[in-house]
Design a protein around this nucleic acid. Structure first.
Lengths: 241, 241
DNA sequence: CCTTCGCCTTGACTTGGATCAACCCTTTTC
DNA sequence: GAAAAGGGTTGATCCAAGTCAAGGCGAAGG
């Protein structure tokens, strides 16, 4: 017990600075006293890629903040067809407030660090700190905007537009202010199979479209992971954004 | 001015009972005094089918509750391809709190009655009535769940599964408790073109799939509008829900 | 009454992306 | 260090859904 607290007395401020930075974390909304209170029930966990954080139809009894890495939110049909319905980056919040059970699965797409806390203690704090409820409300609205953007992609875009949209999404996530005519490079946080599940395509189609972008001189790929986009503006035009 | 108040002194309680009924409206969260205050700035409007309530990239300066009819939320690509990203029924709330401009278009799919109020007065009330903010938070989370459900449909389901899912969605909206092996009938609130835009298909494909369901004896259609589903359970199986 | 218009259906044909299959790297394992 | 396993690519073929085109039907309007 003492150990736990020691860990968190040193870790929490770091976490909170991270949350604050992008105005989406939970901790930035709390007073120092509330932070100490929350930290008493907090556990920081490393999760390896592929591990499941929350499973479909589980009862949810904890929330988490993503500290590092990428978490994919998925839905699966009875016959195994899968769709990624959201990607959570640091410092996003994972969990479904005001509901006992989850309708989606949360799975680590890369190695992930999360800061988890029991639902009950956060729920209690929501009623005490209105600013915290407001943060969660903002994140929900943000995720709703993202989900609807993606619905347009899934419903109406071609395979090549989808792949370009995906690269653009990841690129922007690393550097939202990137020059629209500049070069940018980043590591893909997803495998081809994940990308396919995100785009509603097959891995073969994703692979072919990436090859096409490579041959057209828009991107370079190293080790199947590291991508350089030579001209963000051209990519945007391909993505029809 | 006197006229306006007269209208609303009589109309508001009705509206609020409607909102209360399904726990998603705005008015149920307010005290009688706040209701009176809000009603001072409220206008009730009839909107004919096809009229645009909020246009993409407009600055939003009002919110609305749907009182009757169906509102479609759409996104459109530069070349005209369109996707419906949400359907709002009574007593849903329309508007994007905490943001100056909309990224989607809201358009009346049927004849619609709405109760509109200026953003500023509702925003003021949110800070005074935490219960109101909580309602809006709940609706956002609800819409997020719906959007993610639909992402699975758009990304991974076949045309016939999509059409079955759509019928199921509309059927359930009229009667969420319908027996899963019972018969149910309802009016489609959307044209074939709208259905296609909702499902990410073409009108011809929607038409063919409806014909198939008819020939298979799962549904009957009158006047292209009124649908009877003979066995909700069978429909669910088709929809892969 | 006939014409026009909006909406829907149906048929013929085309095609983008899925499927099936082979193969190529790395990395891991024994 | 050979074998197996886990990604990724590429090619050949197929098919579900898109496109194009014709026509039906009811409502609106002269």
């Amino acid at each position: 017990m003492a150990v736990r607290q020691d860990i968190h007395n040193s870790e929490i401020p770091v976490l909170c600075r991270a949350c604050e930075a992008r105005h989406r974390g939970v901790c930035g909304a709390l007073t120092p006293e509330q932070l100490v209170e929350l930290s008493r029930h907090t556990t920081k966990r490393k999760v390896e890629a592929g591990a499941v954080l929350v499973s479909d139809s589980d009862t949810i009894d904890s929330y988490a903040n993503v500290l590092a890495g990428v978490v994919k939110l998925t839905k699966t049909l009875p016959d195994g067809r899968q769709q990624i319905v959201g990607l959570q980056f640091a410092p996003d919040f994972i969990g479904r407030p005001f509901k006992r059970e989850s309708s989606i699965t949360a799975e680590a797409a890369t190695a992930v660090r999360v800061c988890a806390f029991p639902k009950t203690s956060l729920d209690r704090m929501i009623s005490q700190a209105p600013e915290l409820g407001h943060r969660l409300h903002l994140q929900a609205l943000n995720e709703l905007d993202e989900a609807r953007d993606w619905m347009l992609t899934l419903g109406r875009k071609t395979a090549s537009e989808r792949v370009a949209s995906f690269l653009h999404l990841i690129a922007r996530h690393g550097d939202p202010e990137a020059e629209s005519d500049g070069e940018i490079s980043f590591d893909l946080p997803l495998t081809r199979a994940d990308i396919a599940d995100f785009l509603g395509l097959t891995i073969e189609t994703v692979s072919r479209q990436l090859t096409k972008l490579r041959k057209d001189g828009l991107i370079a790929v190293e080790n199947n992971r590291h991508v350089t986009v030579f001209d963000v503006g051209k990519l945007e035009r391909r993505a029809n954004i």
